[in-house]
Amino acid sequence: MNEKSKSKGISRRKFIQGVGTGVIGSTVLLDTLQAAPEKKGENGEHAGKQLLFLKVNGKTVRSMIEPRTTLVEILRNHLHLTGTKVVCNHGECGACTVLLDGEAVYSCHILALDAAGKEVITVEGLLSGEKLHPLQQAFVEHDGLQCGFCTSGQIMSARALLLKNRHPAEQEVVEGMSGNICRCGAYPKIIESVLAAGGQR
């Protein structure tokens, strides 16, 4: 669970590292730039847009974006995948958690360009057609939610945990899910849901 970096301190460091590599990574795409950084576009957006290729829930996405666009903004505003929520927008609460190449990340805290070429899975990506993933089903059956606003993030953190540790013990669930705040306090039933999905109950 250490490398999952869900604890707040680690994720902030990772974010900074991520920005570094991202700048290098995105230079690959620089030739596709319509470079005019000072000029503003017609709608006032920064004209220095960059082309982003991303794989989201198995589908390749191509989009011209401002470099400052975060991953969650791409998901919600460009792709209309509104299952991923924004609560703090500062990497403090976990509501925007998605999988990036199998790792749980706070998508509000990652520039979309840093995710270029990587594979993103959102809560919608767990569905098979209209059918719930067994993990999602476990959250329904064990009532691992109340208002439902943090739920997508909880489920994606649980997904990352279960990918690494198929049968986590209760303490491992608590550690794995500790980067996700649920203000309703549905935690006991979230723990139950994840344990059930991991086949411990």
Binding site: R76, H80, L81, T82, G83, T84, K85, V86, T122, V123, E124, L127, L132, Q136, Q137, F139, V140, E141, D143, L145, G148, F149, T151, S152, I155
Partner: peptide
């Protein structure tokens, strides 16, 4: 009993006012 709006909330398809576009 499981809540009847559970599907919407775990699938990410629930539209909160925040999600209306």
């Amino acid at each position: 009993l499981s809540r009847i709006d559970g599907y919407d909330k775990v699938s990410g398809t629930a539209k909160f006012s925040f999600d209306i576009s």
